[in-house]
Design a protein around this nucleic acid. Sequence first.
DNA 1: CTGGCTTTGTGAATGTGTGCACGAGTGCCT
DNA 2: AGGCACTCGTGCACACATTCACAAAGCCAG
Lengths: 230, 230
Amino acid sequence: MSPERTRRRIPDATVSRLPVYLRILGEQGEVGVENISSEGLAELAGVNAAKVRKDLSYLGSYGTRGVGYEVAYLVYQVRRELGLTHDWPVVIVGAGNLGQALAGYGGFGERGFPVAGIVDIDESKVGSVLGGTRVRHIDELPQIVQTRRVNIGVIATPGAAAQDAADRLVKAGVTSILNFAPVVLSVPRAIEVRKVDLAVELQILSYHEQRRAGGAIHAVQNGTGRTASA
Amino acid sequence: MSPERTRRRIPDATVSRLPVYLRILGEQGEVGVENISSEGLAELAGVNAAKVRKDLSYLGSYGTRGVGYEVAYLVYQVRRELGLTHDWPVVIVGAGNLGQALAGYGGFGERGFPVAGIVDIDESKVGSVLGGTRVRHIDELPQIVQTRRVNIGVIATPGAAAQDAADRLVKAGVTSILNFAPVVLSVPRAIEVRKVDLAVELQILSYHEQRRAGGAIHAVQNGTGRTASA
DNA sequence: CTGGCTTTGTGAATGTGTGCACGAGTGCCT
DNA sequence: AGGCACTCGTGCACACATTCACAAAGCCAG
């Protein structure tokens, strides 16, 4: 019996770390580890032990003092909290380079996100088979979403087509979107959107590289010593 | 002491937004917009106007009160700050599904990150051509990194091979890594690592979906308001 | 040159996240 | 049974990020 009334809110930062813990716990479980301490988990996840404990405490108190956490039980609790007790079929919009790679990448289905369909607006792409799924025309999107009960849409189109893809996904009834296009989507407030943008990531790395290089120059110009940041 | 020393440190949160501003400014510039207000830019970027102003203020005072920011000049300043005044060649490790998609995706080169090479440990993949680049054996990594002066490495291997890929990249002299493998990398402190993990993103969406389902409390108010989310 | 309008740049207030430090359980050993 | 070593859960202080609110600064019209 789980009291559904406890509508506790888990901080975003914690939610984004839970999947990492979950993967590590799964791996540890597979190699026979039965218990793990916050310190052990922290090391494997590359974070602070106190943070692990605080994160896990939002799920409830599932650890045993002096012992640690029982891996199998913690896996169950994290999965439950993340809503991973059942599969979430996803639909991919865009069968270009990226869409093909995503559909071909088996990891989706394994991790509980089977590809319910992949669609494209380009007739010439319709019909080909990617990772066991036939590409369908984007007009069939509403039907796929409804019959397969899809809540999550993945946008893998060029930037110019992304807003249209988002509109169609929302109209079809999708409530969460993972956007790979380099575009800020405009969607109703209730829709959850996450963005993955390669160019942004590379540019952030570029910033740090530039900083690394410019630091020396700057130090020379200013004549002031600089300490390396961490 | 010298205020010059602190002037140049830009908060992480700001750094991760600058690329978004930059893309929007570029688009606006192309359609002939010469000046843009913090409010206008904020709307297009899906953020708060005050945040835009504060972000831009870290670059210096490049706006004109009563007018806004000159698009062309701001583009120049942001590019300079992000180190985008010259290209940053990247090397891709792993010529599987994802590596192929990344190499085939032209957007890299266009945005200043040309693919200097793509390597794989599997001899059978060596020699094939992806996006104009021939796949080479991973043993050639040091040579590629040195001759092409590569600072940024992209890991597109399966999880099991990712740590080895990281070790090789670091040894070859790479100082920034973009990691697509679902693994927490262990690297020297000085190396900058950014991670992109599809499974994590999907699981975060799953959390919100699960939350939505559990909370019949929220009468889904048909919000007419649209929000921009990044 | 003055007054009115616009928009920036930034101090202050608020919200969110992190990490230390330590009390409180738990299990093991003697 | 009692003591000891271990580890969780969490209060607290600090750091970082966001948002508000407003004076300062620029433009323009008359």
